[in-house]
Design a protein around this nucleic acid. Structure first.
Length: 500
RNA sequence: GGCCCUAUGGUCGAGAGGUUUAAGACGCCGCCCUCUCAAGGCGGAGGCAGGGGUUCAAUUCCCCUUAGGGCUACCA
C-alpha cells in the first residue's frame, strides 16, 4: 500500500454530493509556474470528480497585493484553459471571494476566539520579539512566542493601550498536543504543538494573517479538499488548531511537492522564465504547457505522454501524485511544445510566431490577406523546426532577406564546385519553362536535373540551396522555392553568381 | 539551530517484498532515411545516496547517517 488509508478516500468522495476544491493565489507578482500547476491539479480533480473549483484571492498582504497581479492570474488561467465555477468575477453562494472583502467575517470569529480565551491581544514590540527569537535560536530551541502577553492583567493592558500600542491577536496554542493529519499525498504527518508557539492571527492593523483567514474561508466555502504546494505543509498544524478551536470540519489536505530549478532549489528568476506569462510570450502553446505541468509531479497509468485537456481529466487521479520535488526540465517542455506545434495549423503557428516576426522587423503591424497567406506557407515550412514561437526568427531570414550572404566559407565553396554552374543553368532553364511553381513541380524539376546530369543529389541541391539562401541547411528545397517565388529565386541566383 | 517533507540514470518518473535482466519519456551517443538541418524509424550508454536492521527473500518495510527542500513573519 502506498498510503496507509488506502484508496478509500476516492470512494468516500465519489459518493458525496460534490467535491469542492479551490485555487487561492495571492496577487503579489507575476503568476508563477508553480501556482499554475497547483491550479491545474485542483482543476483536474474538480473536473474528474464532477466537482467545483473555486477561485479565491488571498490579498491580505496589503503592501504586495496588486489588482494588476490579480488580472494577470485570471488571464493566465483562462489562457491555460482552466475555468472556475465560483469565485471572483463570477461570484457564488459563498462569496465574497476576495479576502479583503471578508474582513467583517473574520472579525466575528476573532471576537469569538477572544471571548472564549482561545486568543488574546499581544502588545509586544518588534524589538522584543526579535530579541526573544535570537536568544531561542542561540539556545537551539524552535523560536516561538514566549507568551509574554498571554495572561496580561487589566492594568498592564490598559497601560499599553494608553501608550498607544496597537495590539495583534494571537492564537493560544494548547500545550503538549500531538497534531496529526493524513495528507493525501504524504500519508500521516504529525507535529508537536509545543513547537508552534502562540501565533498572530490578526495583525495590528486589523487584517487577518494568511494562516487564519485561509481556515475560515476554506471552512465557510465548504472546501472538501485543500490541494496546495508543499510550502504550506508546515503551516497546516497551525491551521488545524484553528479548525478545531472554531469547531469547523477539517478538509482533506494534499500537499504537492515544489517545482525546483536545475540546481535543485526553488524555482526563481535566475532559473529563467518562471511565470506563465513569460512562457506565453515566448510562444508556447497553453495545451503544451498544461501537458508538461501535469507530468511534473503526476504520472499516468500507461505510457501515453501527450494528453489533451480532456484526456488529462480522464486520466488524472490524486493517488498518482508524486511526493518528491520535481526539477523543471525546459528540454522536456520544449519537446512537448514542439510536438504540439507539429500538429498545429499554420494559422496557429503564425499566431505564436507573429509577435517575434514583428519584433525582428520582418513584418509590420498590418497584414494584408495576401501577406498573411504567404506567411502561413512560411510557417508550414519552418514549423517542424520550432520548439516555441520565439525560435521562428532563427529560421525565416531566408524567406525575407533577398541579399544572399554566405554563412560560411564552406558555403561559398559549394558554388565553386565544377558542376555547380551547369546545375544552376539547367535549373534556371527548367524553372523558366514551368507553368506553375509548386512543391510538386519543383520537386520534379530537381529530380530531373539529378537524372539528366547524372549527378548525386548533393551536387544538385547544395549549389542551388547556397545560391538562393547562402546557407548549407534549411527546410526542404522544394518547399522553399515556391514560397520565395520564381522571380525572386531567379534574382537571388543571378545576384549570387555575379558575385562569384 | 529546531520542526516537517523528500531520496530509483543528467531530468521527469513506473515500481506497492519474490513476476526485474529495474518500464516509459526528455536529454545524450550511434545507425537508417535524406540535398542539408530538423522530424521520423531503429539501437545504445546511464540508476535504486550510504550504513544498519526485519525477512527464506528488500528498490520496495523500519532505524540511523548524508543530501536536498520547506516552515520557523504583524508574507502567502
Amino acid at each position: 500500500m502506498r498510503y496507509n488509508y488506502g484508496k478509500g478516500w476516492r470512494l468516500q468522495y465519489m459518493t458525496q454530493d460534490e467535491i469542492r476544491v479551490r485555487f487561492a493565489p495571492s496577487p503579489t507578482g507575476p503568476f508563477h509556474i508553480g501556482g499554475a500547476r497547483s491550479a491545474l491539479f485542483n482543476w483536474l480533480l474538480a473536473r474528474k470528480m464532477g466537482g467545483k473549483l473555486i477561485l479565491r484571492i488571498e490579498d491580505t498582504d496589503l503592501e504586495r497585493s496588486t489588482k494588476e497581479s490579480e488580472e494577470n492570474i485570471k488571464e493566465a488561467l483562462k489562457w491555460l484553459g482552466m475555468t472556475w465555477d465560483e469565485g471572483i468575477d463570477i461570484g457564488g453562494e459563498y462569496g465574497p471571494y476576495r479576502q479583503t472583502e471578508r474582513l467583517d467575517i473574520y472579525q466575528k470569529y476573532t471576537e469569538e476566539l477572544l471571548a472564549k480565551g482561545l486568543a488574546y491581544h499581544c502588545y509586544c514590540t518588534d524589538e522584543e520579539l526579535e530579541k526573544d527569537r535570537q536568544q531561542q535560536m542561540a539556545n537551539g530551541e524552535t523560536p516561538h512566542y514566549l507568551g509574554r502577553c498571554s495572561h496580561l492583567t487589566k492594568e498592564s493592558e490598559a497601560k499599553f493601550i494608553a501608550e498607544g500600542r496597537k495590539p495583534t491577536v494571537r492564537f493560544r496554542v494548547p500545550p503538549n498536543q500531538q497534531i496529526v493529519f493524513t495528507d493525501l499525498v504524504r500519508g500521516t504527518v504529525s507535529f508537536e504543538s509545543n513547537g508552534v508557539g502562540d501565533f498572530v492571527i490578526v495583525k495590528s492593523d486589523g487584517i487577518p494573517v494568511y494562516n487564519y483567514a485561509v481556515v475560515i474561508d476554506d471552512a465557510l466555502m465548504k472546501m472538501t479538499h485543500v490541494i496546495r504546494a508543499e510550502e504550506h505543509l508546515s503551516n497546516t498544524p497551525r491551521q488545524l488548531l484553528i479548525y478545531d478551536a472554531l469547531g469547523f470540519k477539517r478538509p482533506e489536505f494534499g500537499h504537492i511537492s515544489l517545482i525546483l530549478g536545475k540546481d535543485r532549489t526553488k524555482m526563481s528568476k535566475r532559473h529563467g522564465a518562471t511565470s506563465v506569462q513569460q512562457y506565453r510570450d515566448l510562444g508556447y502553446l497553453p495545451e503544451a504547457l498544461v501537458n508538461f505541468l501535469a507530468l511534473l509531479g503526476w504520472s499516468p497509468v500507461g505510457e501515453q505522454e501527450i494528453f489533451s485537456l480532456e484526456e488529462l481529466i480522464q486520466a488524472f487521479s490524486m493517488d498518482r501524485v508524486a511526493k518528491n520535488p520535481a526539477v523543471f526540465d525546459v528540454d522536456k517542455l520544449n519537446y512537448i511544445n514542439a510536438t504540439y506545434i507539429k500538429q498545429a495549423s499554420p494559422e496557429c503557428v503564425l499566431e505564436l510566431a507573429l509577435p517575434h516576426l514583428q519584433a525582428a522587423g520582418y513584418v509590420d503591424g498590418t497584414l494584408t490577406a495576401e501577406k498573411r497567406a504567404w506567411l502561413m506557407e512560411v510557417m508550414t515550412a519552418v514549423k517542424e523546426h520550432l520548439s516555441y514561437g520565439a525560435q521562428v526568427v532563427d529560421h525565416v531570414d531566408i524567406f525575407f532577406n533577398e541579399d544572399v550572404q554566405f554563412e560560411s566559407e564552406e558555403a561559398a565553396e559549394v558554388l565553386r564546385d565544377e558542376d555547380a554552374s551547369q546545375v544552376i543553368e539547367v535549373f534556371k532553364e527548367k524553372m523558366a519553362a514551368l507553368e506553375t511553381v509548386d512543391a510538386a513541380s519543383v520537386k520534379k524539376v530537381l529530380k530531373s536535373i539529378v537524372k539528366e546530369l547524372k549527378l548525386g543529389g548533393k551536387k544538385v541541391y547544395m549549389p542551388l540551396r547556397v545560391a538562393m539562401t547562402g546557407k548549407m541547411h534549411g527546410p526542404d528545397l522544394d518547399h522553399i522555392i515556391p514560397i520565395i517565388g520564381r522571380e525572386k529565386v531567379m534574382a537571388r541566383i543571378n545576384a549570387t553568381m555575379a558575385k562569384m
